[in-house]
Structures are given as structure tokens and as C-alpha cells.
Amino acid sequence: MTDMALKGADLIFTTSFGYMDPTINVAAKFPNVKFEHATGYKQADNVSVYSARFYEGRAVQGHIAGHMTKSNIIGYIGSFPIPEVIRGINSAYIHAKKVNPDVQFKIVWAYTWFDPTKEADAAKVLIEQGADVVLQHTDSTAPQAAAQAAGNVITFGQASDMAAYGPMPRVSSIIDNWAPYYIARTQAVMDGTWTSTSTWDGIGAGMVGIGEISSAVPADVKASAEALRDSLADGSYHAFTGPLNKQDGSAWLAAGETASDYGDDSLAGMNFYLEGIEGDVPN
């Protein structure tokens, strides 16, 4: 970042949670350079933050997974135990549970965003534990390949569509669509209108895309999943709507109450599993 700023960059995007403090520190030294940090929460006069409500897409995936699992065991490959990933696990779980009360989640942490070997190993472990659906919050297609080799295991694309693995094992996907945001923020710097902002958009704004639901998904499940997607997009439904309890049984959201973005026990700082998920959030 320092090298970029010294070489005359007017705008620097730092695109991972772990860059948060370095971004703030470097930005303080270069007040005339604009910084955009992805998935973080620390702002400054020349530092904006932006993220996507991937948990909305996880709700759709959980809905499909709960309907389609035959073993009632759903595997989940986590990258890092940060709020973004924990939100996704919780959202997928509660929406799978809504349509299949017998569903169980097994979670393996890969501690990487992209490492095909680690991701493949994680998928194989989950399949060996009985998972016939594998969700991932990592970005390679290795879990898709592992599922394809195992046979009769369903997966979902992450970040990109991964449609080459359709109609099975990949039955849908979450697609990151950052381009409109990047273009708008770059144009704002060029126009001299850039200000520090916090942006958190989802399906409705087009920042989170839901990949085509494949023919491997029964027509009625596809229709209900698309209805869920549309209700999340138009705001008529919130993925975290009570009653919901924390993992220890303590109340989190009352009936009809929806989660707040910021504040105590908010989505932005989510560091806990919801009731029914087994295991501990890694520290």
C-alpha cells in the first residue's frame, strides 16, 4: 500500500478482512489518497468500507440444502472465523433447519480463502463424515471436484458461478459482483465527489448474485428457493428474523424481530453460533 501511494495512486482497494489495520495505518500517512477496505469496519476521512450481504445467499443455499440432503448431514467449509463467515454459517443453518428439522451441520475450517489442496481435503473429510451436501466459503473449485468424484454429493459455487460443474454436483452458487461498486467509487474519485462511506449491499442491489439453480433441483424446491431469493431482494424478508436463540440457548431475537447491522450482538460483529449448531467458534 505504501509503495502504491508513493507511486502516485489516488485510490487503493484493499480486498480482504486482514488488511484492515494496515489500511488504517497507511491511510493516516497519506491523507490525500483514498482507500476502500472490503469487509472491515474501521473508517477514516480517507477510508471507506464495503461488504456484501453474503448471508442472504447462504439463506437460499441452506433452503436448497435442507430440502435435498438425504443423510441430513450438511458439510460447511469455512475460511476464517470472522463475522462474515460466521453469519453465513448461521444463515445457511437456520434456513436448512426450517425445511428439515433433522438437519445437522458439520464445519471444517480451512484457514484460507483459496487453497485447492486444503479445500479438497476439507470436502473429503466432510463427505467421509456423511455429508451429502457441501457448502463452502472458500473460492476454489476443489470441493466441487471432490464431490463429483464421490458421487451423489451436492455443492454450491462460491464467489464465481462454477457452472462447469453443473447440473451436478454444483446446483447453484453465490456470485460476488463487485464491479458496479468499483466503477462508481473510481468515478467518484475522478469527479472529486468521493467521501468516506460504509456500504453493505445484498441481492437487491446486485452485489450478491444467485447462480442459476440447476435441473438437479426439483421444480418445487427451485420455485421456493427463488421465492426466498426474491423476498430477500425486495426487503420483505430478513434472513435473521426471530425467534432465534444463541448456541447456549439464550435469547437473541424475539419473534418477528430482525437483526441489527451494528451495535451489541449485531450482524457486523457476529462471533457466535445459533442454537443447534454443534462445536465452538474458533478463537
Rank of each mutant, 00 (worst) to 15 (best):
A163R: 05
A59I: 12
A233D: 04
Q148W: 04
I203A: 10
A149N: 12
A44M: 12
D230I: 00
A28W: 02
A219F: 09
T117C: 04
A251Y: 06
D10P: 10
Q247R: 12
I86G: 07
P81L: 06
E56G: 02
Y237L: 14
A96T: 03
A219T: 13
F30L: 13
I86E: 01
P143Y: 12
Q144C: 13
Y273T: 12
V133K: 00
G151N: 06
S224T: 15
S214K: 04
N90V: 11
Y50E: 10
Q247A: 14
R87N: 11
R170A: 09
D102Q: 05
A251E: 15
S224I: 10
N100T: 08
E278W: 01
P116L: 08
R185F: 05
M190C: 07
N245Q: 04
Y55M: 05
Q158L: 02
A147D: 11
V134S: 01
V153C: 11
V208Y: 08
F105M: 13
S260W: 05
S71E: 08
L274A: 00
G57H: 03
Q148G: 05
D161L: 03
Y111R: 02
K34M: 02
Y182P: 02
K106G: 05
R229P: 12
I86T: 07
T197E: 15
K70A: 09
V60W: 01
L135K: 06
S71T: 15
A38Y: 12
A5N: 14
Y55I: 11
I107R: 00
A164C: 03
T241F: 05
Q43I: 15
Y237W: 08
Y182Q: 13
I12S: 01
M1H: 01
I64K: 00
F105N: 04
V99Y: 04
A44W: 00
Y262N: 14
A38I: 10
I64V: 09
G192N: 11
E84F: 03
Q247T: 13
T138L: 01
I174C: 07
E278Q: 13
G263H: 09
G242M: 06
A150G: 13
L126T: 11
D176F: 06
M68Q: 10
P167L: 08
P218F: 13
A227W: 11
Q136G: 07
D45W: 01
I89E: 07
P143I: 11
S250A: 12
P143N: 09
I24K: 05
F35W: 04
N177V: 15
P81R: 02
A27P: 11
V217Y: 00
Q61S: 14
V125H: 09
Y181C: 00
K70C: 07
A44C: 05
T2S: 15
Y181V: 07
D248A: 10
M168C: 02
H37R: 03
V85P: 03
K124I: 15
S260T: 14
G276P: 05
F17S: 12
Q104P: 06
T39S: 03
S231M: 07
A259F: 04
H137C: 05
A52G: 14
F105H: 04
G206E: 00
V33C: 12
K34S: 08
K98V: 00
G166N: 05
T195A: 07
R87S: 01
P31W: 01
A239M: 11
S91Q: 02
A142P: 14
S51M: 10
F30Q: 13
T155E: 10
A142G: 11
A188F: 06
A223G: 08
M20E: 15
G249M: 11
D264T: 10
A28S: 15
